[in-house]
Design a binder for these strands. Sequence first.
DNA 1: CAGTATCCGTTGCGATACTG
DNA 2: CAGTATCGCAACGGATACTG
Lengths: 143, 143
Amino acid sequence: MSYATDLTETSASRAASTDTAPSQVHKPGQCTRANEVISLVGDKWSVQIVMLLGTGRHRFMEIKRAIEGISQKMLTVTLRGLERDGYVTRTVYPTIPPKVEYELTDLGLDLLEPLRALGSWALANHDRVVAARTAYDARAKAK
Amino acid sequence: MSYATDLTETSASRAASTDTAPSQVHKPGQCTRANEVISLVGDKWSVQIVMLLGTGRHRFMEIKRAIEGISQKMLTVTLRGLERDGYVTRTVYPTIPPKVEYELTDLGLDLLEPLRALGSWALANHDRVVAARTAYDARAKAK
DNA sequence: CAGTATCCGTTGCGATACTG
DNA sequence: CAGTATCGCAACGGATACTG
């Protein structure tokens, strides 16, 4: 499938249209490509870690302590994934005990912007979602 | 944990800071709240469906055909979730055969904006990610 | 400290069959 | 057409133990 995600497509241009006709531009394959990147957001921990690293360079254990609830295993796995995708760099200091620092790359810093936009939106609209959920569940319960 | 996602925090304000000190504002609980909403993005299909509905009202089978690879079950489940969270409305026309239409609510339309930003970013930076992955795998293979 | 390795329950999700 | 119900596998991800 493909939904219009062209850089030219503004949300304002659509906001007004209430017609039923799906007269948008559709280019197959765009979604697939977009999802390859977005799926990272789908990850339970990736977003949180990128956001945290947005505050600067951090050590492994620092991150673990900061991200409440993450297991050592998942932190390692997630960081590897982020490194592989080019979002973070991993710097090892061969000391005893070892010291490893993680930091966002330029790509990671770039990603931070749309991520922050989403985070802000989430925070701002959290209550509306919760309210919707409560209302829905109440209707469902009343059957 | 909590990373600074304050509406006041701009990406520019951080972009310049290269210091190691994590001297950001941290308010516990914000992440939890934000994640409650962002986890929707983590879903494999939700984003695609919201984006598609951004092009207008659609019937069940229309969506199924548009979202390549989705099963009937997952479409139903995902749409229910989106409805519960207040992103889409479900309108049933009690005809034979039945006709059900899905459409974004105001909340859903609002969400579209940060989602489109992310989608645009993903499309624009897809190649950088793929390049990073290839390079990483090459280094790993060379061991 | 920063991992790696193993076990193992839970969940996600597709395939299939059936219904109003 | 638009679902619901059931099965079954594969993955996700937590707990624990071990290592340089």
